[in-house]
Simulated assay, not measured.
Amino acid sequence: MLTFSVFLIVSTFSNSGFVPTNENMMVFNKNPGLLWVLIPQVVLGNTLYPSFLRLLIWVLKKVTNQGEFEYMLKNYKEIGYRHMLSGVYSSLLGVTAFGFIFLQFVLFCASEWNSEAMDGMNTYQKLVASLFQVVNSRHTGESVFDLSVISPAMMMLFVVTMYLPPYTSFLPGRYRKTDSKNGKLKKKGKKSFAENLILSQLSYLVISAILVCITERQKIKEDPLNFNVLNITVEVISAYGNVGFRLGTVCEQLHPTRVHAKTLGMDLLEDGVMVEN
């Protein structure tokens, strides 16, 4: 038990998402205490790491009154640690991260409150589990719900959040990088031929999704429940964002003939004859 606890904490903080169970974190969706412990590990290990790092240094400066901490806060660029950001950037990063979490949390609760994913859970368990799920949608990818039954609208929202880099922030124009000599915004020069050939990250993701659709076109035709554009998009973006969300497989509905028979309210016998229920 101790080994499992240490393993889970370290994996969550490092955003690895390794959970030594067959069902990820779904076996713990009715354990709010454990989820409350893991939620800070997710955000502190990724999105809010620079914000809390600067906050920790500020607290140490106030407590110890040492000049070294004040120097670190004022000369963060000279330190050469890329996670040490300016005070403004760190604050805006925190506001942005909590804004995304709040938006996802409200929409997730409104969309999935009475869904199959939350069957058997009380109100408090639903709230904590929903918060844990949306916090994990940008990074660690630990899931307490069966994502295959989550609504397509929410999965598309997860796709957007998984695509965003961890240090995404709504930075006002006056805080953007400026030229050190005249204080004006730097202008982009002409791109070289090689730079013009380089596509954006979104372009590569679209190309990857198209290639997967081409290679799996037969399965998309035979098993549209498990192989469709939404599932492929989620898998591709999840891999790119290092999240690791998986939609799973709907095993009992793999065969298209069986799905069609079930839709008509008929039973499919061993010899292929369909009989009304």
Rank of each mutant, 00 (worst) to 15 (best):
Q253V: 04
E70H: 11
K221D: 10
P165F: 01
S115V: 02
G173W: 12
T168M: 13
I9H: 06
L268T: 05
G99I: 07
S200V: 07
Y124P: 00
L85W: 01
R217F: 08
F102G: 08
G87P: 04
N75D: 14
N242H: 07
L60S: 06
I79T: 13
P40K: 05
T161V: 15
G33D: 02
T215C: 10
Q133S: 01
V206C: 09
S14C: 15
T64E: 01
I150K: 13
F52S: 03
L171N: 01
N75Q: 14
T21V: 11
K77D: 11
G265M: 04
G241R: 04
V128K: 06
G80N: 13
K181W: 12
S137M: 09
G120S: 04
E70N: 15
K61V: 01
K190M: 13
V63I: 15
P172R: 03
G67A: 12
N24Q: 07
S137D: 02
N15W: 01
T96I: 07
F108T: 05
Q125C: 05
R174V: 10
L56K: 06
G272Y: 00
S192F: 04
E142A: 11
P165R: 09
D119R: 11
E23R: 12
L269A: 08
S148G: 03
V6M: 08
M162G: 08
F52Y: 12
V106H: 02
P224K: 01
G248H: 01
L44E: 06
H260Q: 12
A97E: 08
S90L: 05
P20K: 02
L85F: 04
K61N: 11
F245V: 06
V160E: 12
N228C: 05
I198R: 13
F170K: 12
L35H: 02
V59Q: 03
V128A: 04
M1W: 08
G80M: 10
Y81M: 13
L268W: 11
G120C: 07
M1G: 13
L8P: 06
N136S: 14
N231A: 11
E195A: 14
T257W: 07
G272D: 11
Y89S: 14
T263L: 12
F7N: 14
S203R: 06
S86T: 10
V6N: 08
K61T: 08
V160T: 12
T257A: 15
F13E: 06
L73K: 05
M72K: 09
S208Y: 07
N46H: 05
L34T: 08
K74F: 06
F193K: 10
L171F: 03
F98L: 15
F193A: 15
G17C: 04
L48K: 06
A261R: 05
E276T: 11
L8V: 09
N196F: 04
T257E: 15
V275N: 03
N228Q: 04
N65T: 10
V95E: 03
P32Y: 02
G265A: 03
P32H: 02
L202N: 15
G87Y: 06
Q218S: 10
T47K: 00
S208F: 05
